[in-house]
Nucleic acid binder design. Structure first.
Length: 915
RNA sequence: GGGCGAAUAGCUCAGCUGGUUAGAGCACCUGUCUUACACACAGGGGGUCGGGGGUUCGAAUCCCUCUUCGCCCA
């Protein structure tokens, strides 16, 4: 017979499908959460790690947002009130740098423009080009609630930021400190500890000698990696327990080059084993030296300015020789080393591997610098964040990151939150311009005159660290400090998905702010995924040029192919390798999978058609063929596997993770594999093939059963797969005969166990084994693939009926004319022993190679005999039988019995073939 | 310098609280354009689980140690 043309085109058109469904979903508000509904549905909330407002989508975003979308779509289908809050970060330093670069191209600096016009210009730039990344996220299918799109620098979020600063000040946790901080001379701002990244560097260790003041013939040698700072030295420190130097403590040395007299002090900070055991102390240019300087009440001359040039900046009169003044710090290093050598003060230069801090935004070497900055006292906040993890209110996956989190929090240091840039939230502090004695005014609202003397005020020049707004993201986006319905319904959220790189920058700080301001951790699960790397395991980056543009992949293979490839390869916390030079190779798994799904859909629509199908629950169980029961059981198992891989979605009891389930769930690759196995290896490879004859039997009741079961099984598969490949599954689902008009798969119910009894598929397993055996024989004997062979299934009393029922199915799947008999017909034939005592006999008239058959049996006998011998030895071992768990021993005994029977049968068969 | 992780098939990885005849995908080999699908189907080869010690009736799995690689922190 001829089949009607499929309702579907022969190839899947990803672009057209994506262009259809995304706008349709958004028009119907599929992604929009409603706090009113959260009364009857469990809310499930994810906040996006806000990309920089000027960012362009890269593979890391692709991975991060695909994971979030998988989770949010899963929960949406599972009946939760799912909310995914999208938005962007104003990214203070990064964004300012972008605009400064534009200005540089025009030959200008931000100072040429002045503060107000510059901020204006950045704002315009952001308005015009910013947030494009959110549109790019739509093209990979991100089902975020765009009606709630947030921005860290919006008026609403700015209000949260100011509230936070003021409240922390009221709590006594914000203070202004004078100390050595990390300074980026290129960005012209201070940085937090986290923003000054370590880079391993092969540097030099310079050994300098300073002459004693009272005896110029004696020297003390100090070792330093930064000789240029010697102009600002105020002491030489030695360990008070170091016998070599004890006598020198209290004496003075004379600095070469500038002749300044400085004392030798004893301080246990000095490590006697490092270098010469004596170190120079430059309090204004080294954080440790600053502490030593404070302990000994030493002066703190500043000899390097904000731009990184050596000169007498503060308290340094007479310290910088004229010929060195104005030199860049690195040029000054060279010059000073030469001068020291000429002066005989350079003892030696050694190679020295050490770590040098660099600005995380522009990679400039960071300069430690003495300055006034705003700090947050972190210890009280950290205590709460630690408690959240310890009580199980919070968990981190993979669990090994929990130790890293704890370690950081236990050693927490105060957070420098002020930045000397212009793009960001201005510090809400004002100072009286007269000297009326009014202390700095910290205010929620703008201050225009001094509350003390009514005189004029000026606002603090600094802006706040970008992360000081991002750390509020889980609640600032919901309207905090207002008590909004959103805040009430959707805080605390559920899962935070991000990369481990920003565990400290962002994740730990969000936990701290959430616990401090709202008394609850902002989420119960932190999911840290791996990094996208190239085939040499290098992180994809702009500078290496080894990146992949996700939009290129979407264009070439579709968003679903991109998503599938990433999710399928996403072991928990494991890096994902992709080849930027071979997109085809990298993404063909996703593309191939989509094609397979598409073709299953085409088959189904052409054979099942669009006429109504009966719900599976309405079918008479007696009508179900073994294959039907098998695939229904397999679907149940697939559902259970997917659920087990993904869940639990939240702590199942109270609000704390129980120890047993703490490490469970979010195994995305396992989920993908379970769904793939079902739809491809079970539904397509076996069920669909086995029912082809039934679907061809027009007008029969059995055809209706097969139609119903196939439609149901594919429907279940599409539901399971939708979170990973939303577009193609929606497109196919809409075409299924049983899909209700006007509904979306994106909102359809997550499948649940159908109640098929365990073992329901056992009958069909006989079919699968028989078919596999016949195919194997055919391949071994090189039977023409198109040719039909004869096959006899020798049944036992138990299996006779079942086999008779399925002989035709076996035949059609294996291209064999199958007879079921009760005794072995003998003769020249290929023979295979199946499980349950069933034998397969394939006569293969004239083709059977007796030697080959003997060989095959011999191989199998030898192997089985070896295994059985080992098993028997184990069972004969007194230690095993007495110490192993009874169930294990029992299982091994059963196995031994089975193997022994099989071995006997194999030997009989072998004997019958002769020597 | 401290901490953590990884090392299993050519590649990317599963293998969770010790008991499997060590698995998957890709790659490879042999067939097949069998009217859903060659982006596919059928069949097949390939691993002394990084080295060495130990615990145990039993170790890829637990402990120690070494080697190599990676990450985080100072």
């Amino acid at each position: 017979m001829t089949w009607p043309d499929s309702a579907l085109p022969t190839t899947y058109d990803a672009a057209a499908t994506e262009a259809t469904w995304y706008p349709t979903w958004t028009e119907h508000g599929v992604f929009t959460a409603d706090p009113a509904r959260a009364a009857t549905r469990e809310p499930f909330v994810i906040v996006i790690p806000p990309p920089n407002v000027t960012a362009v989508l890269h593979m890391g975003h692709g991975l991060n947002n695909t994971v979030q979308d998988v989770l949010i779509r899963w929960r949406r289908m599972a009946g939760d009130e799912a909310l995914w809050v999208p938005g962007t970060d104003h990214a203070g330093i990064a964004t300012q740098n972008v605009v400064e670069k534009q200005l540089a191209a025009e030959g200008k600096t931000r100072f040429d423009l002045g503060r107000e016009p510059f901020v204006q210009r950045v704002a315009e730039f952001v308005d015009k080009t910013g947030g494009e990344i959110l549109n790019q996220l739509k093209s990979i299918g991100a089902s975020a609630d765009w009606s709630r799109t947030a921005y860290t620098f919006s008026p609403e979020l700015s209000r949260s930021v100011r509230e936070t600063f003021v409240r922390l000040h009221e709590d006594g946790l914000v203070y202004k400190g004078h100390r050595v901080i990390h300074w980026c001379p290129r960005c012209g701002t201070s940085l937090s500890d986290e923003e000054a990244e370590f880079t391993d560097t092969n540097g030099k260790l310079y050994h300098l000698r300073y002459a004693l003041a009272n005896d110029a013939s004696q020297f003390i040698t100090v070792a330093t990696t930064r000789p240029e700072t010697m102009l600002g030295d105020v002491a030489v420190a030695v360990n008070p327990d170091d016998e070599r130097y004890q006598a020198l403590i209290g004496q003075e040395v004379i600095l070469p080059l500038n002749g300044v007299r400085i004392p030798i002090v004893g301080d246990s900070y000095t490590d006697p084993t490092f270098g010469s055991g004596a170190v120079k102390i430059t309090p204004a240019h080294d954080a440790n030296d600053f502490e030593v300087g404070k302990r000994h009440q030493l002066a703190m001359p500043v000899i390097i300015d904000a731009e990184g040039f050596v000169r007498e900046v503060e308290g340094a009169a007479g310290r910088v020789p004229a010929e060195l003044s104005g030199l860049d710090r690195f040029a000054a290093r060279k010059a000073i080393v030469q001068l020291l050598e000429a002066a005989g003060a350079l003892v030696k230069i050694e190679n020295h591997a050490h770590s040098v801090r660099h600005c995380y935004r522009c990679d400039t070497v960071v300069e430690p610098r003495l300055s006034d900055q705003w700090f947050v006292k972190m210890q009280p906040l950290a205590d709460k964040a630690l408690a959240a993890l310890r009580t199980g209110e919070l968990r981190i996956l993979p669990e090994r990151w929990e130790a890293v989190y704890v370690n950081w929090l236990e050693g927490i240091r105060d957070w420098n939150i002020s930045r000397q840039i212009w793009w960001g939230h201005r510090v809400p502090v004002w100072y009286c311009e007269s000297s009326c004695g009014e202390t700095p005014i910290v205010s929620r609202t703008d201050v225009t005159q001094c509350p003390g003397c009514s005189g004029s005020v000026r606002q603090d020049e600094d802006v706040l660290d970008t992360w000081f707004s991002s750390w509020l993201w889980p609640f600032s986006t919901l309207g905090w400090p207002e008590k909004t319905p959103d805040l009430k319904a959707f805080y605390p959220g559920d899962v935070l998905v991000t990369a481990p790189e920003i565990l400290f920058f962002w994740v730990a700080r969000m936990v701290m702010s959430g616990c401090w301001f709202l008394d609850k951790a902002p989420f119960h699960t932190v999911y840290l995924h791996g990094t996208v790397r190239d085939m040499q395991h290098r992180k994809m980056s702009k500078s290496l040029g080894n990146g992949i543009d996700p939009l290129d992949v979407v264009k070439l293979y579709g968003a679903d192919a991109l998503r599938w490839t990433m999710v399928a390869g996403l072991g928990l916390g494991v890096d994902i390798m992709l080849d930027p030079n071979d997109l085809e190779k990298s993404f063909s798994p996703g593309r191939n999978f989509c094609t397979k799904l598409w073709n299953i859909g085409r088959f189904l629509l052409s054979r099942v058609g669009t006429d109504p199908v009966a719900p599976v629950s309405s079918l008479d169980r007696a009508q179900l063929a073994p294959a039907d029961r098998w695939i229904l059981e397999r679907l149940d198992i697939a559902i259970a596997d997917c659920d087990a891989a993904l869940g639990p979605a939240r702590p199942s009891t109270a609000e704390h993770w129980a120890e047993l389930e703490r490490g469970r769930g979010l195994r995305l690759s396992e989920y993908a594999e379970a769904a793939r196995r079902f739809v491809w290896n079970e539904l397509a490879d076996w069920y669909l093939e086995s029912i082809k004859p039934r679907l061809a039997a027009e007008g029969t009741a059995d055809r209706e059963v097969a139609r119903a079961v196939l439609a149901h099984a594919f429907d279940g598969a599409l539901r399971l797969l939708h979170p990973i490949v939303p577009f193609i599954t929606e497109e196919l689902w809409q075409k299924l005969p049983q899909t209700p008009q006007g509904t979306f798969l994106a909102q359809a119910a997550w499948p649940v166990h159908s109640g098929e009894p365990a073992g329901a598929g056992a009958g069909f397993e006989m079919v699968r084994e028989s078919v596999a055996a016949i195919r194997q024989v055919r391949a071994e004997y090189n039977v023409n693939p198109g040719a039909w062979v004869d096959a006899v299934l020798v049944a036992t009393a138990d299996t006779q009926d079942m086999l008779a029922l399925q002989a035709d199915t076996v035949g059609s799947l294996a291209r064999a004319k199958v007879r079921v008999e009760t005794s072995n017909p003998g003769g020249a034939a290929a023979q295979v022993l199946l499980s349950g005592g069933i034998e397969l006999v394939v006569p293969l008239a004239g083709m059977v190679d007796l030697e080959k058959e003997k060989q095959r049996l011999d191989t199998e006998i030898v192997q089985l005999d070896k295994q059985l011998t080992a098993l028997d030895a184990r069972l004969a071992n007194e230690g095993f039988v007495s110490k192993a768990k009874p169930q294990v021993v029992e299982a091994e005994r059963a196995k031994a019995t089975e193997w022994r029977t099989r071995l006997t049968q194999l030997r009989d068969k072998r004997t019958s073939l002769g020597a």
